[in-house]
């Protein structure tokens, strides 16, 4: 049971002690890949992709807006999965991964909102519309804040892990309900008639730039989460012998 078909002993790597050096070896790779992908993506986005017919150069904001929005939602789901694993199997590392992902997810959500507002102004004529996606993204930011606030309020880290896991699970069940209700609310109140369907018809180079930057953001988020989880391991296990040797 301990060894599966891949030949890797997963249980071994689920222990903070073995994961700590592994993460340390992986971080430079992910950080390097993040830098390379982001630079290639920016090059494609700024020097290869043509001017968009209707929005002019303002559309170039979506090269970071869309990847940040993807990551913000993706990280919340991954965070909830790690939290659930930690709750179900009582594995400390899973819970640490969940709390390592939360701040990065919140930052991605903030970037998505900020760039969305700056894209909306020239495109829609207003910084903020109560559009279903923008509003849901803002609510997602509040969900991240709730997770971080609950974690900060509980001193005992074991209790914080498990309480945050319950919160993340309740949140992840709610996210689709929130999204569809906000969407419905948006179609009823014809306040914002603009829709994201008016987004530019993407040329292939535009799509390539966005895809490569999305990869770069992905690598960055992994590197940041691994870096943070190493700090969390140090903080929690500072009295263990192996930590003092590793530090």
């Amino acid at each position: 049971m301990a060894v599966d078909v891949t030949g890797i002993n997963w249980y071994k790597y689920s222990a903070p002690r073995t994961f700590y050096p592994l993460a340390g070896r992986l971080i430079p790779w992910f950080a390097g890949l993040a830098l390379v992908f982001c630079l290639i993506g920016l090059y494609i986005g700024f020097f290869l992709a043509p001017t968009e017919a209707r929005q002019g150069e303002a559309y170039r904001i979506i090269f970071i807006h869309v990847p940040a929005a993807w990551m913000s939602m993706f990280i919340y789901v991954v965070m909830a999965i790690w939290a659930a694993l930690g709750l179900a199997f009582n594995t400390r590392l899973s819970s640490m991964m969940a709390s390592a992902l939360a701040p990065t997810g919140a930052i991605m959500t903030f970037i998505a909102l900020w760039t969305g507002a700056l894209w909306g102004r020239p495109t829609w004529g207003t910084y903020w519309v109560w559009d279903a996606r923008l509003t849901s993204e803002l609510i997602l930011l509040f969900l991240y804040f709730g997770f971080l606030a609950l974690e900060a309020a509980i001193e005992d880290s074991r209790r914080a892990d498990r309480a945050c896991a319950v919160l993340a699970l309740v949140g992840v069940v709610n996210v689709p309900i929130i999204y569809f209700s906000v969407k419905w609310w948006n179609t009823l109140h014809q306040g914002a008639t603009v829709s994201l369907e008016s987004a530019p018809r993407m040329a292939t180079t535009m799509f390539a730039g966005m895809g490569v930057l999305a990869l770069g953001f992905w690598m960055y988020c992994i590197a940041a989460a691994l870096h943070r989880v190493r700090s969390i391991i140090l903080e929690r296990e500072r009295r263990a012998d192996w930590v003092r040797e590793a530090a």
Partner: peptide, 17 residues
């Protein structure tokens, strides 16, 4: 305050409907 921060975002669908 913490309860309101945790719970109010989750209340949004009920508010809308």
């Amino acid at each position: 305050v913490l309860i309101s921060l945790l719970v109010l975002p989750l209340y949004i669908p009920v508010l809308i409907l």
